[in-house]
Write a protein that binds this DNA or RNA. Structure first.
Lengths: 346, 346
DNA sequence: CTGAAAGCGCTTACAG
DNA sequence: CTGAAAGCGCTTACAG
């Protein structure tokens, strides 16, 4: 049903070697011959078998992208950036997602092997680090926001520590003292970094971060919502809530309103990532801006550098700074009115 | 650097045929032999070359998913549903996105050919239909929300017409007469269906749909925002705005508020798709519920049915009904107060 | 400029 | 139960 190179060769009256040369744009083919072959290729809609090609050329023209999850806008923005960058090079992206436990990651890694020329991995779970060590040395790999103990790989790291610290400082500067955080869980490296930044902001000012204000979420809207419900069971409510991503912030906002509080006048809320959604919700969400599609682009660029041997040297470790996107969901604290609220909740 | 089947055979002291049998779980291998081979496989971390395998077996254990775009939560939810279904069968998903013009679709299709055992295609752009005709007949294909003139393919269609009609009727029942829509553009089949549903709701009641209330968006938040800005330049403001997806509804809400109107008391807003976000924003968004991850799952299920020859017969055409998710962004109209608003805007 | 032939790494009848 | 050999569809030195 599919035509192969022999069919084309026969129909064009040449050898398969010549067909191959035409397909691959070799310059040592007579123009006339090329035209004959091309005409047959067109007519037969011939496309070379990628397996046969991959087998002999050891090149697949595909880049693998391994993603942990697919909730919210964050990962689709990563894919968007990566796909654009890849397509501009005539390559293709093979995305594999929903990998949260080591077994699945291993299966995905095995699958990718031999099917891609390079790999971009986002594996924020700490315990999946070991798997990465098993990757063949010959395969260019870029680790995106992974724990970075293996210096063999190129890495790109968002400054989660700095971003969270800056945001926390911003809140403290606004007079907030009781600042709750909703994390992304203890095994998530990005969450760990952000938590470290949050705590450091306090200690650098001689304050003591209050661990009872650290709540565990999992980056979904629902977990932001539920964490806030949890927060409101406590004796005193914080004046600000810092969710470690925008999805949880949105969930938090809903819960806060259900409890009868206004944002930002009663409670300030901020997020992390600055997904496209952030500026559209109301109040518009103050968030730590991460250049998300650019992250995907950078990873792809780095991969192509490796592939084209432009960089044979040591692994690069790129550190991506974050900025504060200040909008309307946080407000300078009015100490008096806040105390009133706390009373109300007891 | 990579070991191949010959390395394993040598090290295990058997032929490559035996290694192959062990790898593929053939039952005609002595248990003892199998163990020896497996031990070597483990030690060498041997993984069969997928190109060689694909070349001879004509099976890749991958399903292709062709997506038009990647904005918002809709497509990532599709991927999520599909990936889950695929993984449960030991298969893998190859996602290719950002294909909006026929050239890119063609490139993606060519790339997929030979790399996947089946294909799921979302190509809502009308003019890309021709490309699909060129797909090899031997490849199982499921068309997801595509124009469905080619009866050769399996199709899955969301009831955009019915959903939009139902929503429009709901708004009319609430007393709305001036209901603006923000579409997804004239070449998008899903938008066309929804627009048809919207118009039909009016005509079935003996009303005439007002074309000056149809605004063109492109499914992004920003286009929802800008469409509303456009709407407010008109002499009289509608009492309800029906955005053809949730992202545009969220953009619309922002713009409406900037113009000083309240939702839903001044203007009702509703969306389409019912993405996870919808219930979390405020006011919670009334939307046409589409079972998004299930759409991905259904497509995969259908593909496996084909692959396993369970269904050799004619193509299936699955029609997925939608339901109304009524929340707090739409309100029964108060005619008086609305007239006041219209005056205010002139 | 073109063709015959080797070889990429696997699977699978075919013998034994 | 196991091995030798053919063949999947391509590319690429090697001759000519």
């Amino acid at each position: 049903m599919h035509f192969n190179i022999i069919d084309v060769a026969k129909k064009a009256g040449v050898s398969i070697a010549t067909v191959s040369r035409v397909i691959n744009g070799s310059d040592k083919v007579k123009a006339e011959t090329r035209e004959i072959v091309m005409a047959v290729v067109e007519k037969l809609q011939y496309v070379p078998n990628p397996s046969a090609r991959g087998l002999i050329m050891k090149r697949t023209e595909a880049i693998g992208l391994l993603l942990p999850d697919l909730h919210g806008e964050f990962f689709s923005e990563i894919i968007r950036g990566a796909d654009n960058a890849v397509q501009s090079q005539g390559y293709h992206l093979i995305v594999s997602s929903s990998h949260n436990d080591p077994k699945e990651i291993e299966a995905a890694l095995r699958f990718m092997r031999g099917r891609v020329d390079a790999l971009i991995i986002m594996s924020p779970r700490v315990d999946s680090e070991i798997l990465l060590a098993n990757l063949p040395k010959s395969l260019p790999v870029v680790l995106l926001n992974c724990r970075t103990s293996n210096p063999h790989f190129d890495t790109i790291m968002t400054d989660g520590f700095g971003g969270a610290k800056e945001m926390t400082n911003y809140l403290i500067d606004q007079g907030h003292k009781r600042i709750a955080v909703i994390t992304g869980g203890p095994t998530n490296i990005e969450s760990q970094e952000r938590l470290r930044g949050y705590r450091t902001a306090f200690t650098e000012r001689g304050l003591v971060p209050n661990k009872s204000l650290e709540f565990e979420g999992n980056f979904t809207q629902m977990s932001g919502y539920e964490s806030v419900k949890e927060i409101f069971k406590r004796k005193s409510v914080p004046t600000a809530i810092f969710a470690f991503n925008d999805s949880m912030a949105i969930g938090a906002i809903k819960a806060i309103r259900e409890e009868g509080f206004k944002i930002p006048s009663d409670i300030s809320v901020c997020g992390f990532d600055d997904t496209p959604m952030a500026k559209f919700i109301s109040p518009s969400l103050t968030s730590v801006h991460v250049p998300i599609p650019e992250l995907g682009e950078m990873a792809i660029k780095r991969v192509f550098d490796r592939l084209q041997k432009r960089t044979k040297g040591a692994a690069a470790h790129i550190f991506v700074p974050t900025t504060l996107a200040i909008r309307n969901s946080c407000k300078k604290i009015n100490t008096m009115s806040n105390l009133e609220k706390e009373d109300k909740v007891v």
